[in-house]
Amino acid sequence: MNHVLVVEDEDFLVRALKDNLISEGHSVSVATDGEQVFEELKKKTPSLILLDLLLPKKNGFDVLKEIRQSPEWQHIPVVILSNLGEDSEIKRALELGANDYFVKSQHPIQEVIEKVREYLEGKGSTKVGV
């Protein structure tokens, strides 16, 4: 069973993601702010992280930067799920080491789930899904 860490502060989005991922047979842990991410990472290393960018306490860019600088977690694929959709924001996230970027409102949840599957099956390739 693959473990996915969902980093999202909006309950309804957590709910939708969690339901879909679990129905796909993955286990899911959730962090609702930027600091909680590292507590969850310490508890259990996930196979993939779905990361929102606007988060309480520590924003997603800083979280991503920290993950990419950490020897323990830097290898974990990180897919950004955010409603920030400016070119500059996408560029910044990719430069910081994000593997993919989805603007949530523009993609059906099924596309996200399929992308997660690709990564977990080792087929994921960096492509910006905006």
């Binding site: 909006e10 309804f12 989005l13 709910r15 939708a16 603007v103 949530k104 409102s105 059906p108 949840i109």
Partner: peptide, 11 residues
Amino acid sequence: LRTPLSGTKWL
């Protein structure tokens, strides 16, 4: 604006 829309969409 997108966040609630994406929430509704995904739910």
